[in-house]
Simulated scan of single mutants.
Amino acid sequence: MTAVYSLDMSETAVICLDEAVRRELAVARAKHGNSWEVQSIVNSWGDTMDDRETLAAIRLFNRTGSMFAVSQDRAGRSSDHSRCGEGMG
């Protein structure tokens, strides 16, 4: 059980994201063990990927079995979730 004391909304959101990442990581480890891809995502969390990026990466991994899979966003555009080429039109 998570105790939430007098936190503002942004702190509560961070706690929820952190818990969501941990839940998805548990699912990934249950499905795939502590594979190098799972470990790579874990090692990047908080270093090169923030909570939202980590959650997106681990959800993609859980859905496809690969952190390199190409996903479709709601508008049908493909995204490989990499940082290469960001801001390049």
Rank of each mutant, 00 (worst) to 15 (best):
R29P: 00
D47E: 12
G33M: 03
S10G: 01
A30V: 00
D47G: 06
I15H: 07
H32L: 06
C16H: 11
T12S: 11
E11Y: 06
N34H: 13
E24N: 10
M49G: 00
R22C: 00
V21I: 10
V38Y: 09
V38D: 01
S44T: 02
L17C: 05
E11N: 10
T12L: 15
R23D: 01
E37F: 09
V27S: 02
D18H: 11
V27Q: 03
E37H: 11
V14N: 12
S40W: 13
T48L: 08
V42R: 14
E24I: 03
N43P: 02
A20Q: 12
S6L: 06
E11S: 13
V14T: 12
I41D: 01
A26C: 04
M49K: 15
T12H: 12
E19Y: 07
I41N: 05
N43T: 07
L7N: 05
Q39A: 12
S44M: 11
K31P: 00
R23S: 04
A28L: 02
V27T: 08
R29W: 01
S6Q: 09
A20W: 05
W45D: 01
T12D: 04
S40M: 07
A28V: 01
V21D: 00
T48W: 10
N34A: 13
S35D: 06
E37G: 08
T48P: 03
A26Y: 05
N43F: 09
R29C: 02
N34R: 15
S10V: 03
K31I: 00
D18A: 06
M9E: 08
L17E: 05
G46F: 10
A20Y: 06
T12E: 12
T48C: 08
E37D: 12
M9W: 08
W36H: 13
S40A: 14
I15D: 01
W45C: 02
A28I: 00
A28G: 04
K31V: 00
W36L: 12
D47L: 13
E37L: 07
D8P: 07
L25W: 02
S10P: 00
Q39R: 15
W36D: 14
D47V: 15
W36C: 07
T12G: 09
M9Q: 10
S6T: 05
N43D: 14
M49L: 14
D18K: 14
E24A: 13
W36N: 13
L25M: 12
K31L: 08
D8C: 06
L7K: 12
T12V: 14
A20G: 04
G46Y: 10
D8M: 02
G46M: 07
S10W: 08
N43V: 02
T48D: 06
H32W: 15
E11W: 04
S40E: 11
V42P: 05
L17G: 03
H32M: 07
S6F: 11
H32A: 08
S44D: 11
E11C: 05
E19L: 11
A20V: 00
V42M: 14
C16S: 13
S35E: 01
A13E: 08
V14M: 10
L7A: 04
V21T: 05
I15C: 06
W45P: 02
C16K: 15
A26K: 12
W36T: 13
M49Y: 13
D47R: 15
L17H: 09
D8Q: 06
T48M: 07
V38A: 08
G33K: 09
Q39C: 10
A26L: 08
